[in-house]
Design a protein around this nucleic acid. Structure first.
Length: 939
RNA sequence: ACCCGGGUGGUGGAACUGGUAGACACGCAGGACUUAAAAUCCUGUGGGCAGUAAUGCUCGUGUGGGUUCAACUCCCAUCCCGGGUACCA
């Protein structure tokens, strides 16, 4: 009998399907375990070898947990709303619903080939009305909620209205910009005024924000669609434009998102990324009086008691108020409201010119090109609050409008960017830290003693921070302030292929759709061109945009972003067919948190923060019982493509081999990796690949055409994708699964390389040959296993179960290989040993294990077996003793068993034959212990 | 530019908490079986030097420094590669 993987895999996949082997119930007595993959966006390119990496890992864990007695929820779905489907529709005219359906079918059949243990009865897609009905419903919950800082949780907006009605907002003014009003004032406000105030509290709210606007295309562009400041399609100019947008008030959750990190098991580096993204800082906000000869009227008033009508104030945020006497200039973001008001007449032209320049620059470019220092003096001066010095006010692109107050006080001796700016524009630098500042670069220390600093002279900078803030508060020009780098999350897109907002606008007020009108279905369109004024395509459908009930009203015509549907899908999997609730409380209480969430780090600060926020809101509103969605996160690395290039000699159809390309003027072009063996191009296949290459000529080196290579993201357009289907066809799903795991640590990114898959395939055939021989037939027997055989088995059980729990799948695969080699060497064919081996191997290679399990004449599926217990007695490792000499000094390393006390170790060392020989009767001078395990003996 | 990772033989990688660097696999070379091929099995395989050989010496974990009896592992600096940077998902 031979290992016929194709038949075996088809057979078992069908059996699992027929017996509904992986469908789970919500009412089990067994402990639950929820393993979830970040569900894929079903792209037109289909599944490539990068996708399954995480899926295989989560499948191994699912199967491993099932064998260990857990009721495992392991579902899959599709994040099926998104920009690429709409782009494709614009290019080809095919409706996104149609292409999405096709793509999903492709994904599904590709996934099925690999033998995953998903419960497909629970499959969801975010673009199904039955699903997005609840996305819209949760949006309405967000819209109808506000964040109560006293109770530190989200509450119903009606509670807030009651508070306003009875006491105004004076009693709990919780934000900096609240304008206080009394109950009487509230009750006298018009509906419109009331709604505008409520909008400032809602967790989902509408406001104005900047978008990438492309006049030529008449549309708003995603950052991804803007390349080098022009549109990717057509290369037209792109500028910033203010438009009405929806936002999620995620900033209200900043502190809880930070605190929540303490109780979840994510990689420390990922938590760090989230912390940095949230960017909480302690500092102080303070206002500087501005003096300018500009004729225009007032700026912002400070906190207390100034005459706001005649004076202009510039508010800055700083984490270093101790450096207040080192301020040499002020910088406003070019977008700052005050710019227009304070610019002096003779600087007006220069400022306008600069603003034009900045408008064309992306935020990324502004931060990145730090060496190109740019800025413009406004002609205005701020007055130093403590020494009355006049400080020039500049605008510069390195200050961003979105962070803090959009204005900074610049301290060149302490901040490198300020220093560079001062040097560039010849602004004199004040040194407040004496010898700590060398005049060559800024020194951001907090440990210097302050000089030239008025009332702070002689203080340590660290200590001066609090003193400076007290003084600023005392003077009424500012206050202590916690600041976050994170901004509220933009939640609307001027696009078609997304969830429509259940919102109707009337007289400038947003009204929610009643719950019983959900889902608000996406209307069918034939045209994807944008609506007027940069609105989404939905604005073009008059029938839909104007609701039947009220011709004066207008529906919201933007749609929700990609992350809307993915912010709560883990809850829907618990109760996917519920028509009356997004997820029953019973179901969410049973399944609770996702025990293991598997996906890439590219979602570190997007999806993973949004879904954490949504979970907290749903928890606050009492809809679920836990406020963190994921207990533990495993980040799989990205499998990159290894692209291949050919070099076309300019102006010809000649292609020069990589080694000779420097002798010609050539252009690099992607060549399909399927046409290349290693780096050697199959030139005949290349000619047939595309019509334009039919008459290609090649300049070879050593008779071969050698391609160039580069590691890039795997993508259809780079012709570097590898389809898992062909690998499954050639080697089988089990080989493919094990090979992906064998590639390297699951968390590490690596370029795909198919070389090496043979070795894993060989392993499975070797395994098969422990059971059956082509000529001799059955080899396995029911004899009692020897200790030597059990030792090999139990060593493997120990290693593999530890490795699986620790996600060291690659070393677990190695351990299986060693095990099979060792069993082969001693010709072990005992059922007792082989059966146990099959069980522990089955999460990795389920099909072959099922088949062999049934051939062992065991009844029932291996899926219902239980994980074999590890018995220590078979695995007594003998310690290796070895002497080593280093640098002429005698050093001896002895592997000593664990948990020995110091005295024990010394005794063991001195009685050790190897050491005795090395010491040659000398007394050791010193013992150096390394955590009671290893020791050095110095003589 | 900023934040987070990574860099070990020809290749993917292993090395547990600082303690024999290169497990396991690919590739390559040689051999066995075969009319032949495939498959399978065996042997060798980081570089250099010495030796008929067993073996010995020496260098070696991106680069430069440091700590330590001992560093792939810890610290400082630096280069390169990948992910993210708020409308790709």
């Amino acid at each position: 009998m031979e290992y016929n993987f194709t038949d075996i895999e088809k057979k078992w996949q069908q059996k699992w399907k027929d017996s509904k082997a992986y469908e789970v119930n919500n009412d089990e007595s067994r402990p639950k375990y929820y393993v979830l993959d970040m569900f894929p966006y079903p792209s037109g390119a289909g599944l490539h070898v990068g996708h399954p990496l995480g899926y295989i890992a989560s499948d191994i864990i699912s199967r491993h947990k099932r064998l260990n007695g857990f009721n495992v929820l392991h579902p899959m779905g599709y994040d099926s709303f998104g920009l690429p489907a709409e782009q494709y529709a614009i290019e080809t005219g095919q409706h996104p619903a149609v292409t999405t359906e096709q793509n999903i079918n492709t994904f599904r059949s590709q996934l099925d080939n690999i033998g995953f243990s998903y419960d497909w009865s629970r499959v969801i897609r975010t673009s199904d009305p039955g699903y997005y009905r609840w996305t819209q419903w949760i949006f309405l919950k967000l819209f109808n909620s506000w964040y109560d800082h006293q109770q530190n949780k989200a509450r119903d907006i009606n509670d807030l209205i009651d508070l306003f009605r009875t006491g105004g907002n004076a009693s709990f003014s919780q934000r900096r910009h609240d304008i206080p009003f009394t109950a009487e004032e509230w009750n006298a406000f018009t509906e419109e005024q009331q709604q505008n105030i409520l909008m400032q509290y809602r967790l989902a709210y509408s406001s104005y924000g900047e978008v990438n606007w492309c006049e030529a295309l008449g549309t708003v562009l995603a950052n991804d669609e803007v390349v080098n400041g022009v549109s990717e399609r057509g290369g037209y100019p792109v500028v910033k434009k203010k438009m009405r947008q929806w936002y999620l008030r995620i900033t209200e959750y900043a502190d809880r998102l930070l605190e929540g990190l303490e109780k979840i098991d994510f990689a420390e580096s990922l938590k760090e990324q989230q912390r940095n993204w949230i960017g909480k800082s302690q500092g102080c906000e303070m206002s500087f009086k501005v003096k300018s000869d500009s004729a225009s009227s007032a700026g912002q008033a400070p906190e207390a008691g100034q005459d706001a009508d005649t004076e202009k104030w510039l508010k800055v945020y700083t984490t270093r108020p101790d450096t207040i006497f080192g301020v040499d200039f002020m910088v406003l973001a070019p977008e700052h409201d005050l710019v227009r008001q304070i610019t002096s007449d003779d600087q007006m032209e220069a400022v306008d010119h600069y603003l034009d320049y900045v408008k064309s620059r992306s935020e990324r470019e502004r931060m990145q090109e730090v060496k190109q220092i740019s800025g413009c003096f406004t002609g205005a001066y701020a007055i130093h609050p403590f020494n009355g010095k006049e400080i020039p006010v500049w605008i510069a692109e390195y200050v961003l409008a979105g962070y803090g107050t959009g204005a900074i006080m610049a301290v060149p001796c302490g901040d490198q960017r300020d220093f560079n700016f001062a040097k560039h524009f010849n602004i004199p630098i004040t040194n407040i830290i004496g010898e700590h500042f060398n005049g060559e670069e800024a020194n951001p220390t907090k440990d210097a003693i302050l000089q030239n600093s008025g009332f702070l002279d002689g203080l340590l900078m660290k200590d001066a921070i609090d003193i400076a803030i007290s003084k600023i508060e005392e003077k009424g020009i500012g206050k202590r302030q916690v600041n976050y780098r994170m901004r509220d999350a933009g939640f609307s897109r001027q696009r078609y292929w997304g969830e429509p907002f259940p919102i109707i606008w009337k007289n400038g007020v947003a009204y929610p759709l009643p719950e019983n009108e959900l889902p608000l279905e996406l209307p069918h369109v034939d045209e994807y061109s944008p609506g007027p004024e940069g609105e989404g395509p939905l604005a073009n459908i008059k029938d839909w945009a104007i609701p039947d009930s009220d011709p004066e009203a207008r529906r919201e015509t933007s749609s929700m972003p990609g992350y809307a549907g993915s912010s709560w899908y883990f809850l829907r999997f618990m109760d996917p067919h519920n028509n009356s609730e997004f997820c029953s409380r019973k179901a969410s209480d049973y399944w609770g948190q996702v025990d293991l969430y598997v996906g890439g780090t590219e979602h570190a600060v997007g999806h993973l923060l949004y879904s954490r926020m949504w979970t907290k809101v749903l928890f606050d509103l009492g809809l679920i019982g836990h406020d963190e969605p994921y207990k533990r996160l495993l980040n799989q690395g990205m499998i990159q493509g290894s692209s291949r290039f050919v070099y076309r000699v300019k102006g010809s159809n000649q292609y020069v081999s990589a080694g000779l390309k420097d002798r010609y003027d050539s252009t690099a072009l992607h060549a399909d990796v399927a046409l290349v063996d290693g780096l050697v191009l199959d030139t005949e296949a290349f000619k047939l690949w595309k019509p334009e290459y039919r008459n290609a000529e090649f300049i070879l080196e050593n008779g071969k055409y050698i391609c160039g290579s580069e590691v890039e993201k795997m993508s259809k357009s780079k012709f570097n994708t590898v389809n898992p289907d062909t690998l499954v066809d050639n080697y089988g799903a089990d080989t493919f699964r094990m090979y992906e795991m064998f590639l390297g640590p699951i968390e590490q990114s690596k370029p795909w390389d198919t070389k090496g898959i043979e070795g894993v395939h060989r392993f499975l055939r070797k395994l098969w040959r422990l059971f059956y021989d082509e000529i001799k037939g059955q080899l396995w027997n029911i004899d009692k296993a020897s200790d030597a055989e059990l030792k090999i088995l139990h060593k493997t059980i120990k290693k593999v179960s530890e490795d699986t729990e620790k996600f060291n799948f690659n070393t677990a695969v190695s351990a299986f290989m060693v095990c099979v080699n060792e069993l082969g060497e001693i010709k072990c064919h005992k059922k007792e040993v082989l059966g146990a081996l099959l069980i522990i191997l089955s999460p990795y290679a389920p099909h072959i294990c099922e088949e062999l399990w049934s051939l062992l004449q065991n009844t029932g599926s291996i899926l219902n077996a239980s994980y074999p217990a590890f018995e220590e007695k078979y695995v007594i490792e003998t310690s290796k003793d070895y002497p080593v000499s280093v640098n002429g000094k005698v050093r001896t390393n002895i592997g000593i068993s664990l948990d020995a006390s110091s005295e024990d170790v010394e005794k063991m060392v001195l009685s050790n034959e190897v050491v005795k020989k090395w010491l040659e009767g000398k007394q050791p001078k010193k013992f150096i212990y390394v955590k009671n395990k290893m020791i050095n003996v110095v003589i």
